[in-house]
Nucleic acid binder design. Structure first.
Length: 464
DNA sequence: CGTGCCGGGTG
DNA sequence: CACCCGGCACG
């Protein structure tokens, strides 16, 4: 109803073309002056309208809705129309515009008689829509290429019988709707009708459809499993977490802005490594669910795709913020966490090995002597002490940040590895000064020595 | 040179 | 591992 009226009204004043059926005769143009309802077919529920067209040459003609539709559609593609619609008619030498038109469309002057050929025509082709399809497509492709938006504005309305239009509209709308509910996508009714008969794709991608095309290119990749269904959120969500790690950047992001690449390659990965938690930004736009790794990216996405603002962040009023949310993906806390921990914790947590080591051996009797103080008083202690201090120093920050390993790990490792070296280079342990088994027991009582001493190892009994 | 011990070798 | 030793550094 509503649409119908809209269409009707908008049709008036529209320019139509009376196809030059005769050869290459230039089409005669006219302007729809009025529309009158013809309820003859009311019984069948078929309401037809008759359009009064003021022809270029000043004459007034009446056309049926279908014809108008034809005429409107044909406009830009005279030739293709001629061949597809009129079959062999193209023989006639083109003549005055009038003539051309008379020949081809004259019958249309009388709706009754006109109907016939056309119907026949349609039947012949199988479906009335058939020929239209071609026209429409070519229209959208050729015409739109030339005059992008303008063509899509007045061409569509009266192209075919209202019923067809409505039907197709509904169909197209449904398709579009099912594919995406993005406001912009469905907003231009023009496009919908324009895109009738399956050519919606073409139409949708051309003129003002920046949004729709944008939308598709965006969402499709984010939802590889079913690019044509409107369930990106789900799939996207379930997908990302698993793909991210290996991906370096969601494919969708590549398609995204150019800087997206760098952003994705630089930012997310390091971040991910630092924290097992990855922050992503999800578009909340209905049926979109696009997920990007950067706030800027998602904002831009929303701005351009959903809000239809084709400008940089400068002209942003912050509205994008309402359409996306920050989500945290706990990508690999377990695996990564463990793997990063294992190398660290042992070394960090067990600087005492040096201390412990002594305990067992000193079990003999010297244990009491060295238990606590000895380690530090020993010749090696200096090194040990340093090492220990080092750890304490390094350890605190390391432990406090239970999450941020990655780089820290290596750092820590480096730190940890240096002490031993230092200790080693430091000294070959400036020889223990205290008494040793050998000294104490003498060579003759070697059996009384601590095992270490016997083995020519660092004495464990009289540890300094 | 006597000692303390590391680095290595062997069973 | 347990044991032994060559060999070096230190005092």
């Amino acid at each position: 109803m509503h649409t119908r009226r809209l269409v009707k009204r908008s049709v008036i004043g529209s320019r139509v073309y009376a196809p030059g059926l005769t050869g290459d005769a230039a089409p005669l143009t006219g302007v729809i002056q009025a529309v009158k309802h013809d309820n003859r077919d009311a019984s069948t529920g078929h309401r037809r309208n008759v359009y009064t067209v003021l022809m270029q040459d000043g004459s007034l003609k009446e056309y049926t809705e279908e014809e108008i539709a034809q005429m409107t559609a044909k406009a830009p593609l005279k030739s293709s129309l001629k061949s597809s619609c009129n079959g062999g008619q193209r023989d006639g030498p083109m003549q005055g515009q009038n003539g051309g038109m008379q020949r081809g469309e004259v019958p249309s002057l009388s709706p009754e008689s006109t109907e016939e050929p056309r119907v026949l025509e349609h039947k012949r082709t199988g479906r009335a829509l058939e020929p239209e399809k071609d026209h429409t497509r070519s229209v959208s492709l050729l015409e739109q290429k030339r005059k992008v938006v303008s063509s899509s504005i007045d061409v569509p309305q009266a192209r075919k019988s209202e019923e067809e239009v409505d039907m197709d509209k509904v169909t197209a709308a449904m398709v579009l709707t099912s594919l995406s509910t993005s406001p912009l996508v469905r907003s231009p009714p023009v496009k919908v009708s324009e895109g009738l008969n399956g050519s919606w794709k073409d139409g949708g991608f051309t003129p003002s459809s920046y949004s729709s095309s944008g939308y598709w290119s965006w969402s499709a990749p984010s939802d590889q499993s079913n690019p044509s269904t409107p369930s990106p959120p789900l799939s996207a969500d379930s997908f990302k977490p698993f793909r991210m790690p290996s991906l370096s950047g969601p494919p969708d992001d590549n398609i995204d802005e150019h800087d997206g690449n760098s952003l994705l390659f630089d930012e997310p990965i390091p971040r991910k490594r630092k924290n097992s938690m990855k922050v992503m930004f999800k578009c909340l736009w209905k049926n979109c669910g696009k997920v990007l790794s950067t706030a800027a990216g998602i904002q831009r996405h929303i701005r351009t795709v959903h809000l239809g603002r084709n400008c940089d962040s400068e002209c942003s009023d912050g509205e994008e913020d309402f359409y996306y949310t920050e989500i945290k993906l706990n990508t690999d806390s377990v695996a990564d966490g463990l793997s990063s921990l294992s190398p660290v914790s042992p070394s960090v947590l067990s600087p005492p090995p040096g201390l412990d080591q002594k305990q067992p051996d000193g079990t003999n009797g010297a244990k009491s002597e060295n238990s606590t103080t000895t380690p530090l008083s020993r010749s090696a202690p200096s090194a040990l002490y340093l090492v220990h201090t080092d750890h304490a120093y390094q350890a605190s920050p390391t432990h406090s940040q239970t999450q941020g390993f990655g780089e820290q790990r290596s750092q820590t490792i480096a730190v940890l590895s240096s002490p031993p070296r230092a200790a080693g280079s430091f000294s070959r342990k400036s020889r223990g000064e205290g008494k040793k088994c050998r000294k104490v027991y003498g060579m003759e009582n070697r059996d009384m020595w601590c095992t270490a001493c016997r083995w020519k190892k660092a004495c464990q009994r009289f540890v300094d």
